[in-house]
Nucleic acid binder design. Structure first.
Lengths: 198, 198
DNA sequence: CCACACATGTAAATTGTTACATGATTGA
DNA sequence: TCAATCATGTAACAATTTACATGTGTGG
């Protein structure tokens, strides 16, 4: 599934500009899908070309004309067809976990830093983004939450909570174990200060 | 972080061919990093060009010569530098959750199918891949498990378990709610059989 | 007899991100 | 005054997947 289908999906919730779509994705899809303007604007152009969306240009002063997109019946049909045909993939690409896997190659201070950075990031997502989304009931363009939306939201919250709890629980032990077995990364970092202070 | 660093990391566990690296990644990194031959072979070529790995060619009959790569001191240094400098990202791209978010646009049968497919896939990863990995203590090339490896492994197991439990728990309710509110996808799928059987 | 494991590699196609280009308004 | 919000779009760049190209041995 590509950004095109995503945009179409978001537009099925209500008419929006490209800018709004980005906001909406950031608010609601942040933890399982991301898209930049560089993919959203071309996607909208192609959807318009295919007749899946209609464009209404709102003339503005001091800034580019706003282009509000709304889904057409053909677009809704295409969306449903694409969703029904899409195979449900779920990919994780985690540089964080690669770093953890090779933690024994990392300077201990950096390891602690990395873990704390990850904890902070996940806390922010969990408490700011998701809470805000549920409060606003979907943010711009989204009215009442459909059951599936609550499911996706709940999934994010559940999995993030589990991840956060795990990392918090494991942090002290991991740090201790790494500190106890110096596997050469300090020597490598310092060059060859052989036996300094030993 | 790209495939190059990953290959270097895997090679820090022991010498291996490109084919072996793929196997190793599938066994140990499956749930948080994936790479195809199309990215592994070019990565190895560049690592060799940079002097980060040494190549030993083993002549074989009936199949291409096997090329066994081993990391050099320069390679180990580069690996450590790159790991220390890498920022810990963790991205999820889930077509599955997009599908769930727009579940009200999906035919109910398909929705059930999608959920069951996901459950089956995650069960397989959880019970086959991870169990096998822990039993073999790392699979090809990996000796004793470092603390960081256990951390990464445990993370995968924890998060997958949480995901699986959530989906299993929510499945009946979601299916029921979706069945109860027919939001037009059946009519769309059938064309316009207005009032048939009503 | 077919599919899978072994084994390496290239090229095309896809897909997406980042940076650039432009610029007014508003609030801290 | 500085940063953020609003607003669209393109182009260069990066990274990866998929398909292609080639071929043997083994087990069901």
């Amino acid at each position: 599934m590509d950004t095109r289908t995503l945009c179409l999906g978001v537009l099925s919730l209500g008419e929006m500009s490209g800018y709004d779509i980005k906001k909406c994705l950031e608010a609601s899809f942040r933890h399982f899908f991301q898209a930049s303007y560089g993919s959203i604007y071309p996607a909208l152009a192609e959807l318009a070309r295919k007749g899946y969306v209609r464009v209404r240009t709102i003339v503005q002063e001091g800034r580019p004309d706003k282009k509000v997109y709304s889904i057409t019946p053909a677009g809704l049909e295409a969306l449903r067809a694409e969703l029904a045909a899409a195979e449900p993939r779920h990919r994780v690409r985690s540089e964080f976990l690669v770093l953890m896997f090779f933690a024994h190659h990392l300077p201990p201070e950096r390891l602690a830093e990395v873990i704390d950075e990850m904890i902070a990031r996940w806390e922010r997502i969990l408490f700011e983004d998701l809470a805000a989304f549920e409060k606003a009931e979907g943010g711009p363009g989204v009215g009442e939450l459909e059951p599936g939306m609550r499911f996706a939201l709940g999934f994010g919250r559940t999995v993030l909570s589990a991840a956060l709890a795990y990392v918090r629980r494991q942090r002290p032990g991991l740090l201790r174990e790494i500190a106890e077995r110096p596997s050469g990364e300090d020597a490598a970092a310092d060059g060859a200060i052989a036996g300094a202070g030993d």
